[in-house]
Simulated scan of single mutants.
Amino acid sequence: MFKEFKEFAVKGNVIDLAVGVVIGGAFGKIVTSLVNDIIMPIIGALTGGVDFKYLKFVIKGSNGSKEALTVNYGNFIQNIIDFLIVSFSIFLFVRLINKFKKEKKAEVVKVEVKQSEEVLLLQEIRDLLKSKEV
């Protein structure tokens, strides 16, 4: 069983997936910081100082020891903005990768195949024979 697990864990796809998860986690922190520390304060300033984290509907007020029952829609709005920024960033990244792949394919296609002297000589002979047949 250990041998099978080792073969599975060492496969390229598993390692690529692990690297993607780690980079994705770090990227998520960067985007969360971008939203929380830069974008949301700007939106808050544009909306008159509203902090989205604290926007909520109070369904039932607090009763002494019981906390208030609330719907925290501001946090939901902030998570939607996070999602939109993350998905747009990933879209741009994938688009950039695809552009590089297309350019690399174009370079591969542009490489001319150098023919040997024998092949060139045979092509000349063929062309000469074709011209004599007419």
Rank of each mutant, 00 (worst) to 15 (best):
K3P: 11
E4L: 04
S87P: 00
F5E: 04
D82T: 07
K110G: 10
N98H: 04
V58Q: 14
V119S: 09
K53G: 12
E7I: 00
S87W: 07
L96P: 14
E133T: 07
D37G: 05
I97F: 11
L55M: 02
F88E: 05
Q115P: 08
N36K: 10
S65T: 09
L46E: 05
S89H: 03
V31E: 02
F8N: 03
T70D: 09
E67W: 01
I80S: 07
I97D: 01
G20F: 13
T32P: 09
I125H: 07
V10G: 08
K114C: 07
I43H: 05
F8A: 04
G12A: 06
K60S: 12
M1N: 10
G12I: 02
V134M: 14
F5P: 13
I39M: 07
F91H: 08
K101Y: 08
M40L: 10
A106G: 04
E103S: 10
D37E: 08
I38P: 13
V22I: 12
I42K: 04
I23Q: 12
G49W: 03
D82W: 06
N75E: 10
F57G: 08
I85K: 05
V22T: 03
L96I: 04
F93N: 12
E107C: 08
G25S: 06
V50R: 06
F8I: 02
K11Q: 05
V108N: 13
D37A: 13
K102C: 03
A9G: 04
I59S: 09
F2T: 08
A68T: 02
R126A: 10
L121K: 15
V10F: 09
L69I: 15
A106S: 11
F93H: 14
D51K: 15
I15A: 00
F2G: 13
I85V: 13
E7G: 00
L34H: 00
L121T: 12
A18W: 08
I125V: 14
F27L: 03
G48H: 00
G61E: 15
F2Q: 08
K6R: 07
K104C: 06
A9Y: 14
F88R: 06
L84I: 14
F57R: 00
G20H: 09
E7F: 01
I15L: 02
G12S: 07
K101I: 06
T32I: 05
G20C: 06
A9E: 05
L69S: 14
A45H: 04
D37M: 07
F88W: 11
E117H: 12
V22R: 00
V109E: 15
E124V: 05
E107V: 13
